[in-house]
């Protein structure tokens, strides 16, 4: 357990007035508040430190105790004993362990000296929003082709989640109120889930559009005809125009990926033709190709 210099946390001198402490707290809290810095772990950590420092220094009685025992924190245990003996007369509300934001988020130093935030009665408004939680979920691209429900276990709590079709790789969704519990009437934090989408299909995804390459035999490319190609929903019949060139792109409207949170709307599927030149030609085939070449030369 390390000693924490709360004055240093708030960038203050030991002789700082209550107004200096308030000003310093406001300045730093505005900079590091979790609502201003969503998904920023560093800011969240800093905000907790600032809060802790403010809770101690803004209360003259606790500041006095901190100034007295803080440097020599080994004596905190004795201080704690004395404090506990006083607590019994306060009734059941002031005993018990602190929860949520305080239980998890105050430093060991703070817990040891002050026993959590519940022993702070001096500050009028000490409502704390619960901690935001972050989780990551790995899904296969086929899983996010359709909306589905999934049950996640986060901090031993089961959360039933509706995963809308069309979620992007790297996208984060917020589940309001499913983060850490709020303290002293404060609201619960939020749960942020980041998605990693694994794609091992022949389809490349760019937003709502899908891209794939289809091999086309030379004869069908030259003469045209019908082919069957794979889409995410199954096989699709496609007409190939005569004299199709290598690299030709064809768009299949509405056969791409579902648009996020827009039910019934889909992107497009782009197919690029890769014309396959026949190999291992028989003497007869070679003869016919030569004939074609001669015809072309004289055309």
């Amino acid at each position: 357990m390390e000693f924490i210099d709360y004055y240093k946390v708030l960038d203050l001198d030991k002789g700082a007035s209550q107004s200096d402490i308030k000003k310093a707290y406001r300045k730093l809290a505005r900079k590091y508040h979790p609502d201003i810095n969503p998904n920023n772990k560093e800011a969240e950590k800093k905000f907790k430190e600032i809060n802790e420092a403010h809770m101690v220094l803004s209360n003259p009685e606790n500041r006095k105790k901190y100034d007295q025992y803080g440097k020599d924190w080994q004596h905190a245990e004795e201080f704690e004993k004395a404090k506990k003996s006083r607590q019994y007369s306060y009734g059941p509300q002031s005993s018990g362990s602190s929860q949520g934001y305080s239980g998890q988020d105050f430093s060991d130093f703070f817990e040891s000296m002050f026993g959590g935030s519940q022993n702070f009665g001096g500050r009028g408004r000490v409502k704390f929003r619960g901690q935001d939680l972050n989780a990551s979920l790995q899904l296969h691209i086929r899983d996010v082709y359709t909306s589905h429900k999934r049950t996640l276990t986060i901090n031993n709590k089961k959360i039933r989640l509706n995963i809308p079709a069309g979620i992007e790789n790297g996208q984060t969704i917020k589940i309001s109120g499913h983060g850490g519990p709020g303290q002293q009437g404060g609201p619960n934090g939020d749960l942020y889930i980041s998605f990693t989408i694994i794609n091992d299909t022949p389809f490349k995804r760019d937003g709502n559009n899908l891209y794939t390459t289809v091999n086309l035999d030379l004869y069908k490319a030259v003469l045209g005809g019908d082919i069957t190609v794979d889409s995410f929903e199954g096989q699709v019949k496609l007409k190939v125009k005569p004299e199709t060139q290598n690299g030709t792109k064809v768009k299949l409207k509405g056969k791409g990926f579902p648009v996020y949170k827009k039910e019934g709307q889909f992107g497009d599927l782009y197919i690029t033709y890769n014309i396959v030149v026949p190999t291992k030609l028989s003497p007869k085939e070679k003869e016919l190709f030569s004939e074609l070449a001669t015809l072309k030369k004289h055309a």
Binding site: R26, A29, H33, D35, I36, K127, S176, G177, P187
Partner: peptide
Amino acid sequence: QLPRAEKILRLYSDLEINLEGIAVI
């Protein structure tokens, strides 16, 4: 709108930011 309303309340009460400031944030 609830998460938004609650966020505004937190900014207003935790940081004492006025409504103009919250709108900008």
